[in-house]
Write a protein that binds this DNA or RNA. Structure first.
Lengths: 467, 467
DNA sequence: CTGTTAGCGCATTCAT
DNA sequence: ATGAATGCGCTAACAG
């Protein structure tokens, strides 16, 4: 089955023609199926006033039918009218865009059927009552206005509650919106109103637990504010991020929430001048009240300290990607805790890697292969910890009896690992929420606070006292 | 520090005023810092022609400055001009929106400084050469056109490569776009062009592995097509989903990709008539070429069969949420495999739950508490399997020696569980990619195929032969 | 309180 | 090949 099926709607095109003609041009007798050419000229007369200087050709551009391929111009028969033409002036009435659609549809229909005369089977033929039509998603406030016998402005006012409206008219408008199935065009609204009520959210690798938790927090924080988030994925690649941000700006989002990411600081500074921006989970100098993040140094310190408190002195650090600021800060915390406890820092115990499970496996394998003595591991994140834990068990090392293990992030799986993993919990959801609220306030030029949230050590069962 | 900082840009407001005045009204001598009131009336004269019937008050709406709070009207001094007024006609020139901004800025500045005379320190004072200005994100094709001495149309043509343009002009336009830092307004483009080059993607619970993998697939499949995805989160709640879809439609996305979800089939049918739609990871009757999903019955069968092949006959099923179609289908597969092997179905072995780790824990606890005999578990997803595995170990049951375990989804953590989890891998990324390609073809009315992708049993170490 | 008017920034069509 | 004109659907200022 191919996509041809897709355009099959409840009504055939010719039926739609009839419906619309009946609705907008009751004066035309189309139910009797006159020659299509006849319709054309009639409609053309009505349309003549519509667009001065365009002649009768190509009165419609392709979008009229929601198609993307260009319509060939109608054979040129349709006469050209200018605004001054008395006939057209006479015939002028509120002509909806449907009328334009019709002409094209008719022409297309005529072409595809070869002849110039058309007989139309129709559910409408014997029924001049024209009721509501299944929506094609094209109702506009003008339609509503016509239907409710008010002006567009009034409809707009009802929509936005921007000023008082007479209760009667209000009801009529609401009624019309309901029967016509009106759905406001946010695109037009954004363009006219100069604001889109949308926030761009640049996230990283949809599917990674920490960033997803942040996104969830953002969604939660935005609930009820009237703003909706628009997520794009930066994939931790500068080029993709830049591209995504361009898209967001092109969409005229009212604010930007950048979660993590590698965008150079200079670009960020430029960005901030154009659009309210808040950076989440990344620390940037000079952005004091525009970024929210946890204290990774403290977190690294806490985790290491916890192990030290349990008697460990040979603590392996499986830090993440070398340049990643989070990894660097956690490393600093690790070093600080060691120093404070008077433990000599041993580079043999530190492994670079990425944030993957495989990276944990490899680190442990290497540790064991080199025969390095260690009694505990502090992993860059939970995934690395899982990898390490697997590798340990492969080598017959038990957790926590032989080796203690601490992760980072407290992703959902951590609590159900065997044994449940002791890990640093980042308040990801809370950060997302806070950031969302902050950006809304920032946009409205309201004051707000963006506190550095504390991390929490989730003590579970992967850490044991060293005997 | 509060958000007041945000509006601090590289240039002060008064500098911006001067810049703009110099650029648009070189005839005015503003560098000498005349009284602000003087400027006001001068600009007002120029602006008089701009908007007939508006008087001199509140010439600017709030968006002009990107602010959201209303500007108080200028004190009322500015005279009112109509289009007929000879002075204003005389002074008419292409007045940019900046001019409007200026007036407001000036008024605000004047108010905030109390006096009516202003001396402005300015980098522009001694420099009548007006170069490029740091972008405020407001450059339009008109600006480009002015700068390149061509018409808007030509700029548009260059932008869209929609028709040949003289190489010289083309270069000039490109040059202008670069120096002015032009960024096309996608909102306006969507409105005018009738298509947004955006696809709405309704996903469920950002942060759940399977749906995130699908999203990643979508991103991948869309790369290079010119379409960009717009993610919204349905949270597995009908109301939220409906709301999200409305938003997407309001944004005039060109197509819809619904990943999972609970939207009633009738609504879906309505939807499909309005907008190209493809449903992912959900099976709907009558949507044969519009939905892509795996064969969950087969998957349930495969997993169960695998356990049976290893000699298990007492296989507990930790199915997911009761009404969830996936859970139902997998259950059917389970039953089918049992029947085929001549094993009597035992309701004691089936547990309802959700898709959480806790649900796995509870099921196993209950199984053990009731003393039900079982040698294997087939879990609704990997997370449930992790929970089950933890509970088993709490009860001293080893995996796979005492109990074999099969999960579902093959999320990243599965391969690093202890022991690595045997699980059903859904081709999530591939499905996402296929769906993305399909929707693009659907939009363009091109044929496409939407195959039912096969699942794969990832045999790892959590299943052992029953002795 | 309501209708009128003028754009928002761009694509597109017709005329040149 | 290029410019002028029109409108996409809506908001908001203005004039009753």
């Amino acid at each position: 089955m191919t996509s041809q099926q897709q355009t099959t709607t409840q009504f055939s095109r010719i039926q739609l023609i009839q419906y619309q003609l009946l609705k907008h041009f009751p004066v035309l007798d189309v139910t009797g199926a006159p020659a299509a050419a006849h319709w054309q000229s009639k409609v053309a007369v009505l349309l003549g006033s519509q667009r001065a200087g365009r002649g009768g050709h190509e009165l419609v551009n392709r979008r009229a039918l929601g198609q993307t391929r260009a319509m060939k111009p109608v054979s040129g028969k349709a006469p050209s009218f200018t605004k001054k033409s008395p006939e057209s002036t006479l015939a002028m009435k509120p002509v909806s865009r449907y009328a334009q659609v019709l002409m094209v549809v008719m022409a297309a229909f005529q072409r595809s059927h070869g002849g110039n005369s058309v007989r139309c089977p129709s559910p409408f033929r014997n029924n001049r009552e024209v009721g509501p039509m299944p929506q094609r998603g094209e109702t506009t406030i003008q339609d509503i206005a016509d239907h409710a016998h008010v002006s567009k402005s009034t409809v707009s006012r009802v929509l936005n509650r921007s000023s008082r409206v007479n209760e009667d008219k209000r009801a009529a408008v609401l009624e019309a919106m309901k029967t016509l199935g009106f759905e406001p065009n946010l695109v037009a609204r954004s363009l006219a109103g100069g604001r889109s009520m949308t926030l761009g959210v640049l996230t990283q690798n949809i599917g990674s637990p920490f960033y997803d938790a942040l996104s969830q927090g953002v969604i939660r924080g935005l609930a009820g504010t009237g703003y909706s988030p628009l997520f794009v994925d930066g994939q931790w690649q500068q080029s993709t991020e830049a591209e995504s941000i361009r898209t967001l700006i092109g969409r005229r989002v009212d604010g930007l929430l950048l979660i993590g990411g590698d965008v150079p600081v200079e670009d960020l500074n430029d960005l901030r001048e154009r659009i309210p921006t808040i950076v989440v989970a990344r620390e940037i100098k000079g952005w004091e009240n525009h970024c929210i993040h946890v204290d990774n140094v403290q977190a690294g310190y806490d985790a290491t300290r916890h192990l030290i408190d349990f008697g460990h002195r040979r603590i392996a650090l499986l830090r993440g990607i070398k340049e990643h600021p989070d990894a660097i800060h956690r490393f600093e915390g690790y070093v600080k805790a060691l120093e404070e406890a008077g433990i000599k820092f041993d580079p043999e115990l530190v492994f670079q890697g990425d944030f993957s499970g495989q990276s944990g496996v490899m680190a442990v394998n290497s540790l064991v292969a080199k025969g390095t003595h260690f009694t505990a591991i502090f992993a860059a994140n939970d995934m690395v910890a899982f990898g390490a834990r697997l590798a340990l068990s492969r080598h017959g090392l038990r957790v926590p009896e032989d080796v203690s293990l601490v992760g980072f992030d407290d992703q959902a799986e951590a609590a159900f690992a065997t044994p449940p993993l002791t890990t640093i919990k980042q308040p990801a959801v809370e950060m997302g929420t806070a950031a969302a609220r902050a950006i809304v306030n920032l946009i409205h030029d309201q004051p707000y606070e963006l506190a550095c949230l504390p991390v929490e050590l989730m003590k579970r069962e992967s850490v044991a006292r060293l005997r």
